[in-house]
């Protein structure tokens, strides 16, 4: 067992436990976008930063991939952590301003304005869908492609993958709804979600405005009003 201190409280956890899990065990909330129980930790969104060490040795680490160490002193909500987290949220919000998930987290952290130019991307490259596809669905139909600013997620050659079963898991976990529904282009489709709705999305005229795998489809509901 490893003993460490989180926000002044002693806790002992098993070897290999991450700081995020330890903090959750004590009931300290740490926001995260790229972590999901059952999927391997990845450390992409950096939203789960916490401060470790003391005084001049203090540094920020992402708690979802940092394993607990003996005698570690962790602060999950120090001024420095909150400031860093706010900045990360603002940047995430600038890249994906339409994401409901990111908007909610940002709002909970008291972000009321946007300083950066909005990019209107539909992906934060958190890799949740890639891990979902590989680790839970055992398919490996989608993955990262390219590098740097050209990095994107999708199927090889942008055509429907042979191993994809249209389970829709990738869309279900997506915090930014990157994998936009493409049911009207069946060769690119990665989910069959819309077809299972009643009435099916595909039969509606406003199909182009639909964003996601949800029941009922939020985009459709908004359109109705």
């Amino acid at each position: 067992m490893i003993n460490l201190k989180i926000n002044g409280l002693n806790v002992s956890v098993e070897k290999g436990t991450t700081l995020l899990e330890a903090a959750k065990f004590l009931g300290f909330p740490i926001p995260t976008l790229c972590h999901m129980d059952g999927l391997s930790p990845y450390g992409a969104c950096r939203l789960c930063v916490v401060e470790i060490g003391e005084d001049s040795n203090a540094k920020l680490v992402s708690s979802c991939i940092y394993p607990a160490e003996e005698g570690l002193k962790v602060r999950t909500a120090s001024t420095r952590v909150l400031k860093a987290r706010k900045m990360i949220l603002e940047l995430l919000l600038a890249s994906c301003p339409q994401s409901k998930t990111i908007q909610d987290v940002a709002s909970a952290h008291g972000i009321r304005q946007q300083r950066f130019k909005q990019e209107y991307e539909d992906c934060i490259l958190c890799g949740l869908c890639v891990r979902m596809c590989e680790e839970q669905m055992m398919a490996k139909a989608i993955g990262f492609r390219g590098r740097g600013e050209n990095r994107s997620i999708g199927t090889p050659f942008d055509i429907k993958s042979d191993v994809c079963r249209l389970c829709g898991g990738c869309m279900y976990v997506c915090p930014a709804c990157q994998l936009r529904c493409t049911y009207n282009e069946p060769e690119k489709a990665i989910c069959g979600g819309c077809a299972n709705l009643a009435p099916p999305c595909v039969e509606k005229e406003e199909f182009d405005d639909m964003m996601c795998y949800m029941n009922p489809c939020v985009a459709c509901e908004i359109k109705k009003d």
Binding site: K140, A141, I142, G143, F144, R145, G146, R147, T155, P156, F157, S161, D162, V163
Partner: peptide, 13 residues
């Protein structure tokens, strides 16, 4: 190897 991994490497470099 899965095609995704190979494609990832091929597009990375």
């Amino acid at each position: 190897r899965s095609l995704v991994d190979i494609y990832g490497v091929a597009t990375f470099y």
